[in-house]
């Protein structure tokens, strides 16, 4: 599995199928924002989200959305605060703000959050 830094450096894209996002990295998830939904409950009983880590990718299912692409405008991003696996989660310097842009052909552009985008940890 690639690290977040590798994915960002090599501009590797993820995938999106309806309510499922496939990310080419593994991470500890702290916060995800989709539209006005602020998700911080990643427990197995969470109704809104399900995260499953596979050998080569991470699956995220957004149960409350039928289709993410039709819900989110082209200027809007799914935002997340993540920590690289193996790094100290308690150190705020390791908290990365990532923006996911849903593009055509099921592609997901992964960017380190733009300075302009309003995104509060």
């Amino acid at each position: 599995m690639k690290t977040i830094s590798q994915v960002l450096k090599e501009n590797i894209t993820g995938l999106c199928y309806y309510n499922r996002i496939i990310l080419p990295f593994s991470a500890h998830f702290l916060k995800i924002i989709v539209e006005s939904d602020i998700i911080t409950d990643f427990s197995p009983s969470s109704k809104g989200i399900f995260i499953r880590e596979k050998e080569d990718f991470t699956d995220i299912y957004f149960h409350e959305y039928k289709g993410l692409k039709s819900s989110i405008s082209k200027y809007e991003a799914i935002k997340m605060v993540v920590v690289e696996k193996g790094k100290n989660i308690f150190n705020f310097d390791n908290h990365l703000k990532i923006a996911l842009y849903l593009e055509d052909k099921h592609l997901v552009r992964i960017e380190k959050s733009d300075h302009d985008i309003l995104f509060l940890e």
């Binding site: 539209e35 405008s73 200027y75 809007e76 991003a77 733009d114 302009d116 985008i117």
Partner: peptide, 13 residues
């Protein structure tokens, strides 16, 4: 400007 709309995360929602 597309860049401004992106920075403002413009959405009609």
């Amino acid at each position: 400007d597309q860049e401004i709309l992106k920075a403002n995360e413009f959405d009609f929602e």
